[in-house]
Design a protein around this nucleic acid. Structure first.
Lengths: 144, 144
DNA sequence: TTATATGCAAACAATTTGCATCCTG
DNA sequence: CAGGATGCAAATTGTTTGCATATAA
């Protein structure tokens, strides 16, 4: 199919290697969001000679081919998620790092208005809500 | 006044040094958004022995005291802006880096709903729209 | 066969930190 | 005067790159 790894790589004139298959597979399975290092550690379990450099290079390719979305969920590193077509944004817990996805139905209208207003051609919108999840709010109360 | 540099630093039990005054002043004057390095270069014109480390340390303090907001406008560094109380978000031109501020009237309602829905206590919202400004769209047309 | 991908180690760049010294309060 | 702040240089850390070798097509 058109959004398969094979198809995407072929379309870009790139090769389908075991490493790429593995990394893409890990991202497919995980519902969540992984850092390069987390992907590296998971992948090493099946391909022990894999290098972190290859993980980074693969992620860049997958990002460029539109298969993967790169997120700045925390301030110190990137996280990666498979592009599944359903536009969504993220809520991040500042305490435990939990990430929740949400979709904002009316947001795109707002963005379109803004685009027209400022003469911008908007290609993507990144929304990140920061706060504390239910669990962490409870813990804070106990600690104090 | 309550949002002055002096007041804020006093309240946090910290000192008012020439370096801090200078850096805060630069951020006040600039309507835009500056990276640590840009602030450093500007500040050196008036205080030639200033170190980049002090710029970073000062920015961290100003951020912690709520005077300064740290933004990830581009992927490779932070930008800093003085907190002026008016909530706003940013549109960034992927080609020339131009930044436009906008306010989203109804967004906070949406965020509040989401907060309730997921049991989150939201402390801040970051919205970044990426695209191409009017000028850069025009240039692309000429080049192609 | 041949250009692309990999693994390794070294390089990078933004940011942080250790420490001796300085200076605000 | 004392503890926080500074300047300098070195350290850190996520990410990238050079290069020789391996491999997909």
């Amino acid at each position: 199919m058109e959004n398969s790894l094979e198809y995407r790589l072929r379309a870009a004139g790139e090769r389908l290697t075991p490493q790429r298959r593995l990394i893409a597979g890990i991202l497919q399975e995980q519902e969540g969001h992984l850092s390069a290092d987390e992907i590296y550690l998971l992948a090493r379990r099946q391909h022990s000679s894999l290098s972190l450099a290859t993980v980074y290079r693969t992620l860049r390719r997958l990002k460029e081919s539109g298969m993967v979305r790169e997120l700045r969920l925390s301030s110190d590193r990137y996280y990666y998620e498979i592009e599944r077509g359903r536009a969504h944004q993220h809520i991040v817990c500042l305490s435990c790092g939990k990430v929740i996805e949400f979709t904002c139905a009316h947001c795109s209208e707002v963005y379109n208005e803004l685009a027209v207003q400022h003469g911008f051609q908007i290609t993507s919108a990144r929304v990140k809500l920061l706060g504390y999840c239910a669990d962490c709010q409870a813990h804070v109360h106990h600690e104090t």
